[in-house]
């Protein structure tokens, strides 16, 4: 995370966009502009509200989730609270799940959890931001609940036969976050080192948290 190339995937080294920010069809642009301008004229939202909402969403993601996970890894009391009263526990990180409810599920030696929303794209947005495209697509939504082990394999996650898989189907009111397993051999690691290990996919439960040497393998 802290190397010279720590920039988003859409930029080249000279700072130019690799790809122009694409616009949708003109019809969609017309509808969006119309709805947005009407909402502003009616005083429902302001341009500033929209800018701030985009900024807030951009600030969510992997690194925010990683802070919660590492806190749970390093503080047993916090972990207990996170698993039993998730909404309250994440409030410490400035996250307000309301009006939704958060349920954090723990990966152990016996159980692997993964999260899907078969009906749409419900996701722990206040923590992880906008879901990845594959999470919203039919293939993941359809298959995660029928053949989770095969789906996990497509993410490079091979589970031993004896391990139980629990698939959590999110809905409008209830969102799930996976507490991944802390990799062995990280007992002496600092909080910053640990946070850098935690990936978005490990908190959706489609992969485990791996040590850099394992990830390269």
């Amino acid at each position: 995370m802290s190397n010279d190339h720590d920039h988003g995937p859409t930029h080249t080294h000279d700072g130019k966009l690799i790809q122009e920010d694409e616009l949708p069809s003109i019809e969609a642009q017309i509808l969006e502009t119309s709805v947005r301008e009407l909402l502003i004229e009616k005083g429902v939202v302001s341009g500033e509200d929209i800018r701030r909402a985009i900024e807030a969403m951009d600030s969510r993601g992997e690194s925010l989730g990683a802070k919660i996970v590492v806190r749970a890894w390093t503080d047993p009391k916090y972990k207990d609270r996170l698993l039993n009263n998730s909404d309250d526990a994440v409030r410490e990180f400035g996250i307000n799940m309301s009006p939704m409810e958060l349920c954090v599920v723990e990966n152990t030696d016996e159980v692997h959890n993964m999260v899907v929303c078969t009906l749409c794209s419900c996701y722990p947005r206040p923590i992880l931001g906008i879901p990845p495209a594959w999470y919203k697509r039919r293939d993941y939504r359809a298959r995660a609940v029928r053949e989770p082990r095969a789906v996990l394999q497509e993410f490079g996650t091979d589970l031993p036969d004896g391990k139980q898989v629990r698939v959590h189907d999110s809905n409008a009111d209830l969102r799930y976050l996976v507490l991944p397993k802390r990799p062995e051999g990280t007992e002496d690691w600092t909080v910053e080192q640990l946070e850098a290990l935690v990936t978005r996919d490990s908190m959706i439960g489609v992969s485990d948290v791996r040590l850099p040497s394992e990830a390269d393998a």
């Binding site: 009906l119 039919r138 293939d139 359809a142 029928r146 789906v151 497509e154 993410f155």
Partner: peptide, 9 residues
Amino acid sequence: YGGLPAGPI
């Protein structure tokens, strides 16, 4: 979509 046949992720 839940449980329906579908393609690779």
